[in-house]
Nucleic acid binder design. Structure first.
Lengths: 195, 195
DNA sequence: GTCTATATGAAGATAGAC
DNA sequence: GTCTATCTTCATATAGAC
């Protein structure tokens, strides 16, 4: 059978009802504050002002909520990626990706920790092909063929630096613009020499 | 009453029975893998090959286990700190602290994520004075009086970079020595210009 | 130091009414 | 889309024996 369906559905094309979107927004906030395991369906329901049953009507399991939250966030990353991947030369594509990822991370600084370091999220990311593929594309573009330890450590440092810095208590009181300027300066320094 | 007791007990002076130490070792491993909230006392008991009641005999609550795990780890940091703080000039003290923290983090790379980013741990760290004080001393020495955004972002990036890089999938297959060499090179680059 | 047994509550999850 | 009611499982935690 000849199909025009893509092998992988674009995450951006996933549509949710308003009720589902509300659940995901509340869940993301609670995940960020308490971790995925530390967040119960009761807490999500309370956050929405409804009962657990109402939440279960929209998502059959807690896992589905976690996955949907991840898909939502990775859809934004996918959009950035698609724009960057068609850019030439590659060095410009990389620069652009870096800029946009930092912007995205700063915009969503209250939430990056869940996506980057929650054990449940990490496991989901490793097991769920579409999410894994997005991550691989990001690193593929960032490393641009380089596979040596230097390049990989540099990319890992950058990823850790961007995500980890934003949630750090030392910079909690800094405004977005100051944070972006400094983060960009520092990541450029990491990147330019090794990337 | 005149007392020779220090206002704060040194974390290194806390002694545990062998049974307690075994519990903490198993707990730390499970916390790293599943997060603190994702780890039950049943899992810890199973990991030890005993019943829950046996664990409860040594620690009255799960919180106590979490706190003891944190104290154990921070005691190592405290030891490094005490050695560094008496060094002169300050630039040497900072260099030494950085080196030893990186070594410590690499030695304990499977566990840094719990201490650095688990929501339960973060809350504990913010609420528990003795742990908070250790953290403040680390940043105090690292920043050495600097309070500007540049210095603070640099310190945050470094902290995030060290902890976050070690657990990153991109470097999961790299040996400790390669990791240390590259991490040191990169953190020096962040540090030397801003620190 | 470890066990069995048990209490109590909260978790995930479903059925069926409105 | 939301409710009440209910089920089951698992969580934290304790009592008391060996």
């Amino acid at each position: 059978m000849v199909s025009t369906e893509p092998a992988t559905v674009r995450l951006q094309s996933i549509r949710r009802s308003p009720a589902q979107a509300r659940i995901l927004a509340v869940a993301l906030n609670l995940f960020a504050e308490h971790g995925v395991s530390g967040t119960s369906l009761q807490m999500i329901a309370d956050g929405l002002g409804v009962t657990k049953a109402a939440v279960y009507h929209k998502f059959n399991t807690k896992s589905e909520i976690v996955l949907a939250v991840a898909e939502n966030e990775f859809a934004k990353l996918e959009a950035v990626l698609e724009t960057a991947e068609i850019l030439e030369p590659r060095v410009r594509a990389r620069e652009m990706l870096l800029l946009r990822v930092i912007d995205m991370a700063i915009e969503r600084r209250r939430w990056v920790s869940v996506l980057q370091s929650d054990p449940v999220m990490i496991r989901l990311l490793a097991d769920h092909e579409p999410l894994l593929r997005i991550t691989e594309r990001v690193y593929g573009l960032l490393l641009d063929g380089a596979t040596g330890p230097e390049a990989r450590v540099a990319a890992a440092v950058m990823s850790a630096a961007i995500g980890g810095t934003l949630v750090h208590p030392l910079v909690a009181d800094l405004d977005d613009e100051t944070l972006r300027r400094n983060l960009l300066r520092i990541t450029r320094r990491i990147f330019d020499v090794d990337g």
